[in-house]
Amino acid sequence: MDLIRVKNVEKKYKNGVTAIYDLNLAIEKGSFVFVIGGSGSGKSTFIKLLYREEKPTKGQVIVGGLDVAKLKNKKVYKLRRKLGIVFQDYRLLPKLTVYENVAFALECIGEKKDVIRIKVLKALEDVGLKNKVHEYPDNLSGGEQQRVAIARAIVNDPKLLLCDEPTGNLDPEKSLEIMKVLESINKSRGTTIIMATHDKEIVNKMKKQVITLKDGHLVKFKQKGTYAE
């Protein structure tokens, strides 16, 4: 079954730049998909369309049965609760501990304290940070901070995990660590993962589905693809 359907989508920004032209694709539930392409290829815009940070100027974006393009601003939270998002810059709150950062996501949606505790510890275990719950983000390495961000993204058991260049700030070794974490989440939780990246090595090593974008056009959608120019 398809978790995501994108039909005839065009995205033109207010400054006149068109980031995506006539995009059509479908992504199956439980898959692990890389979105690759150079700068300005539309990778980030594609991810932003999926979590309704941007609205398409034309076409339909359907995520888990929700027509994202038609979603009113007030209702965006309903979509966001169904997905997790990870960014290149981690976006953690420096004044909160690792535990509190992850718990924050559940507090915001009014979850009960004891439920929060169970879910947060499970998520932190899944990313291998159970021994750092009381640390502050500034005392962690970049890879660890990104794992906290991943824990926060998966703590609410989303169907879909979106990652926008999650390894962009990390060295190859730490990047691989993150990829292992993501792969195990994909396998154990069945979470669909869509990851935008320009890291060739990772894409070639993982042998996952690959969507290649160039100047806003879909060039290729390959099963077990590699980063080929």
Partner: peptide, 15 residues
């Protein structure tokens, strides 16, 4: 920053 994260994780507007 906090508001941005709240929006990402699906806090409703009223929250």
């Amino acid at each position: 920053r906090e508001i941005g994260i709240m929006r990402l994780v699906g806090a409703s507007n009223i929250t």
